[in-house]
Design a protein around this nucleic acid. Sequence first.
DNA 1: TATGAATGAGCGTTCATTCAT
DNA 2: TATGAATGAACGCTCATTCAT
Lengths: 188, 188, 188, 188
Amino acid sequence: MRVSKASEERRQEILDAAMRVFYDKGYEKASISDIALKIGVAQGLIYRYFKSKEALFAGALDYYAGCLAEEMGREIRNDKTALREKILNAPSFYHIEDDDSYYYKLLSGPDSKGIYQQLSLRVAERLVPVVRDAIAADMEKGRLNCVEDPETVAAFCVYGQLGVLFREDLSGSQKVERIRKFVSEQIR
Amino acid sequence: MRVSKASEERRQEILDAAMRVFYDKGYEKASISDIALKIGVAQGLIYRYFKSKEALFAGALDYYAGCLAEEMGREIRNDKTALREKILNAPSFYHIEDDDSYYYKLLSGPDSKGIYQQLSLRVAERLVPVVRDAIAADMEKGRLNCVEDPETVAAFCVYGQLGVLFREDLSGSQKVERIRKFVSEQIR
Amino acid sequence: MRVSKASEERRQEILDAAMRVFYDKGYEKASISDIALKIGVAQGLIYRYFKSKEALFAGALDYYAGCLAEEMGREIRNDKTALREKILNAPSFYHIEDDDSYYYKLLSGPDSKGIYQQLSLRVAERLVPVVRDAIAADMEKGRLNCVEDPETVAAFCVYGQLGVLFREDLSGSQKVERIRKFVSEQIR
Amino acid sequence: MRVSKASEERRQEILDAAMRVFYDKGYEKASISDIALKIGVAQGLIYRYFKSKEALFAGALDYYAGCLAEEMGREIRNDKTALREKILNAPSFYHIEDDDSYYYKLLSGPDSKGIYQQLSLRVAERLVPVVRDAIAADMEKGRLNCVEDPETVAAFCVYGQLGVLFREDLSGSQKVERIRKFVSEQIR
DNA sequence: TATGAATGAGCGTTCATTCAT
DNA sequence: TATGAATGAACGCTCATTCAT
């Protein structure tokens, strides 16, 4: 039974399946037909939407990093409260839902772990300018001492968290707790 | 012409060639025969030293991360001076040699970029405990205000730098300068 | 925007595009969608006119061989002058337009070169009976010495030219000149 | 059971199987694994000897055209007798063994027929210079009237035969007979 | 008549891995 | 220890063809 869908919808569907499969099996071990199977579609169809496996991967990574960064960045862009407060109140810049989210299921193998990391790094990359602007705004409003290079400060704030998030010996909520404590103690 | 070498020497040679090739082409696109070719040896030989491509990759990553972390950690472990001074004097925890080092040649493709990142993250992972201990030592010696969770502080110090190091718009020395300034300003 | 055309016109259009594409890329590398694209039509449409790629190819080859043979045969069928004179006056049985005609653009690859040759051979095949009849007519009119097997003589006349035409080291006009000289010298 | 062979021997074996399969099924429909199967070898092995299907085809065509032309040219190169005599005595320049030889099994489909023709044309191409030299030698020895452009004469002699050989309505021996008669009658 | 998304078989190709030497 | 021909599975990708609209 042949089902035609609006082009954009199919694209999303493929992107979604792709990210899941790449995530679960790693770039190398994921095959295009795994992805096709997951949405019940012929493998060939995927090539109408993405010109290669590599392009699909890049697309999926971009798309998801974009979504996550957008989500995490939304609150930061709201400048009602200082950045410091946001961090103390929100779980973290990062979207942690104590385990079930497949974004945080770490797997073995050279690739899959790498994908979690690649995704996280992409998100971090996109978050830095947002945080930088928030810092600049805080400075302007006098909510933060003057800082010479807000971009670097932002980089440390965002990537520093990765040091905690990538630990495999803590649960999601423990990671959040560590970060929160760090901020409340060390950041004025 | 068949050349026999001491087992350990061969192993190193393979590890070395492997890392270079993986680095240049990415895990996927690198082939065992590329690696064998680089050291002028038959592909089959590699399997006497490593049981699979994946094992070779893991071995190479570990080995290099180990070497780099060792090198970078050496000075940190010396507790003559405070950590802060070390950072201000040394270029960075990371080994930056303004371009020529192939560790910093970023390449395109899902893998190659990922390998640079994977390597960096591995190094960071290994550096965190070293820095944590240095912080603890500084605290003990009264060279640093008391810190509740030295491990998290160390994580921010180490991974935070990645936010600068991964930027593609700065040269190596610019990155170092940014980090140094950040430390001298923001870290008491 | 959907354009409907008279069936026969569409057919011609497809045949024409097909021959060009097959000619340029070779049978194998030419795809139905290349052909469809060339006339700005959906691939599916082609299957309303030809039942398969192979049938389309056969059709195109036949059609073009027919056209070319018809054109080349026209003058030969006119029995006002002897065959020998026709060849001496006309450039050759073959339609040579010193380069620009795409029929003579030789391409590399197993197919494309083959198509030029296939087409030429088809034309030759169709021309033989025409020439045979012209020879017979010449004999009847006493314009030619008696010949026992006019078909074979015709075959040599027609296919012999291919030996010159397929040379890749001569321009079109050089080829014509060679053929003309050969006829004027060797054929009584 | 794994059988290793001398490199050159394997190459020949592949070339041979390839020509047979291409000949029987046509370039398009012949698959690499058909060829591998025919020699009882893994498909992958073929790629150690030829970098692509296309290269294998080209190689096979060249090799066979070379063999056939060599064989046919051997007698021609011997200048004991005049070219005309050779043709009258030998069956033809071409290697005709009244049906069983697979070189002359014409098949349907766009490719297979084309391969017979491609092969024949390649042979013809290689034979022309040989015949040209024979003509020149005959002229020198006074066994032939002077000819202005021996190359073109040779081309007509060689390619002209194709007009007979490509006929599908005659048996091999009938073709030979036609050619012989033509030569004895028309060529002085 | 025309569209073009969808199918699905098939193929070329690569390459990690093995093994006879 | 070392070779490199051979294996064979797997996969990306293409494309002729179909079909719902």
